[in-house]
């Protein structure tokens, strides 16, 4: 649980932050104040883990709060001005949000905070956790619904989708997908973390095999892979992750 203080001279802005943060149960808003003086008074009695700070406020600007701040308190700037990002990071801020605050961007910021306070593990590290158990390039998969074992090559895997206890793999130059008696979490440990990325809870792809993507107005994105006629539909979150990877 991370506690937070909101500092912004606009009441509406504070209300919005509260609403947005309500979607993240791990962050608890202790209070909201209107200016630097109010913040100082608040901090005399309570110590939040993080302060969401507006930059330009009526009497004193947000940056002024920083010198007197306990160094263990994280600072996230929330402001309409883009240009001060560098200055903010120089001043030691954890993150910088522009108004109007984008809920998806806020989610990224929350992840960053949770990481900083060691409440979650980095997702990037997820696929590199167990190097000792890595599969070789050529390996075998137990198929679902039979005692068969399929020999295949890691480089031929295009994507893996979760299907309850099993997973479905699509290979290059294969018309149909293959269902394997292996779970998503097992695959995460076994696959090469450099080539494969997890886009969301139920999808792993081999990123460099993505040939093109087609975004369809806010509903879904269709991915086309090398050597495959079937397209893969992914949702917004997966699509956002993919953009960062490409």
């Amino acid at each position: 649980m991370i506690t937070a203080l909101l500092v912004d001279d606009e009441d509406a802005a504070n209300r919005r932050m509260r609403t947005l943060l309500a979607a993240h149960p791990k962050i608890h808003v202790l209070g909201a104040v209107e200016n630097v003086a109010g913040a100082e008074e608040f901090l005399a009695h309570q110590r939040p883990d993080v302060i969401f700070l507006d930059m330009k406020m009526r009497s004193r600007i947000g940056l002024e709060l920083l010198p007197s701040l306990d160094s263990r308190i994280a600072v996230v700037f929330v402001t309409a001005y883009e240009n001060y990002a560098l200055a903010a990071f120089d001043a030691g801020a954890v993150d910088y949000l522009v108004k109007p605050v984008n809920p998806e961007r806020l989610a990224v910021m929350v992840d960053r905070l949770l990481l900083k306070f060691r409440l979650i593990k980095s997702p990037d590290q997820e696929m590199e956790r167990f190097p000792a158990q890595r599969l070789h390039e050529y390996f075998s998969i137990p198929l679902a619904g039979s005692k068969e074992i399929l020999q295949c090559s890691m480089s031929e895997i295009l994507w893996i989708e979760a299907m309850q206890n099993y997973t479905q793999l699509q290979f290059k130059n294969q018309a149909k997908a293959v269902t394997a008696r292996r779970s998503m979490s097992e695959w995460i440990k076994l696959l090469d973390g450099n080539r494969f990325d997890r886009l969301d809870r139920s999808l792993i792809i081999q990123t460099e095999m993505v040939r093109s993507s087609e975004w369809n107005a806010r509903d879904y994105t269709l991915l086309t892979f090398e050597g495959c006629d079937r397209n893969l539909a992914i949702g917004r979150q997966a699509s956002a992750r993919l953009k960062m990877l490409l």
């Binding site: 993505v210 993507s213 087609e214 975004w215 107005a217 490409l246």
Partner: peptide, 16 residues
């Protein structure tokens, strides 16, 4: 898309 509602279909397709 929100402005036109169901009267609009739009797509952006891009090779990697």
């Amino acid at each position: 898309r929100i402005r036109f509602g169901d009267n609009l279909i739009c797509k952006i397709g891009c090779d990697t």
